[in-house]
């Protein structure tokens, strides 16, 4: 099925099966490999993107259900929160192997867009669908606090 979808601000044409998950359209059809496959069943968060600005697992969203909604991936995420998260991630050296990190960053940015000064509990509840097999959780939480402080100032 030929489709036009809006990804990172640009309308793109793709020819994919109706039930292809958004994740595979991004990775295989559009070559946006920053979004990762971890589980394929909404259990790990590696495939998190924004759909109309809201975090969503792309592995379980069939492309036919996307409609006219706009997708933002790790390659295209921008704005104050994204910059603060990027800086905090670098300063804390958050990633270990890095595999889960694009999903972690998308979820962290989504949280900070909505909660300016998240508590530990806010962070844990927003982030615990993002699994990290290297267990970088402590640095992730600290970096989100750092990013929140940077956004205040």
């Amino acid at each position: 099925m030929a489709l036009a979808i809006k990804v990172n601000g640009t309308i793109q044409s793709v020819d994919v099966d109706n039930d292809a998950p958004l994740l595979w359209v991004l990775r295989d059809a559009l070559g946006l490999a920053g979004t990762k496959f971890g589980c394929g069943v909404a259990q790990c968060g590696a495939c998190t993107v924004f759909v109309d600005g809201k975090p969503m697992r792309s592995c379980t969203l069939p492309i036919s259900a996307l409609g006219t909604r706009e997708v933002t991936t790790i390659e295209g995420v921008s704005g104050r929160e994204a910059e603060a998260v990027q800086q905090a991630w670098i300063a804390r050296d958050v990633p270990q192997c890095g595999y889960c990190q694009s999903g972690q960053v998308m979820s962290a940015v989504a949280l900070l867009k909505q909660v300016k000064k998240p508590s530990d509990r806010d962070i844990d509840l927003a982030m615990n669908g993002n699994v990290c097999r290297c267990a970088t959780y402590v640095r992730i939480r600290a970096a989100i606090h750092d990013a929140a402080r940077a956004l205040e100032g």
Partner: peptide, 13 residues
């Protein structure tokens, strides 16, 4: 909650 709503994973069908 912010950052982790039901429809983060549960889509329209």
């Amino acid at each position: 909650v912010p950052g982790m709503t039901c429809n983060t994973c549960h889509h329209t069908a």
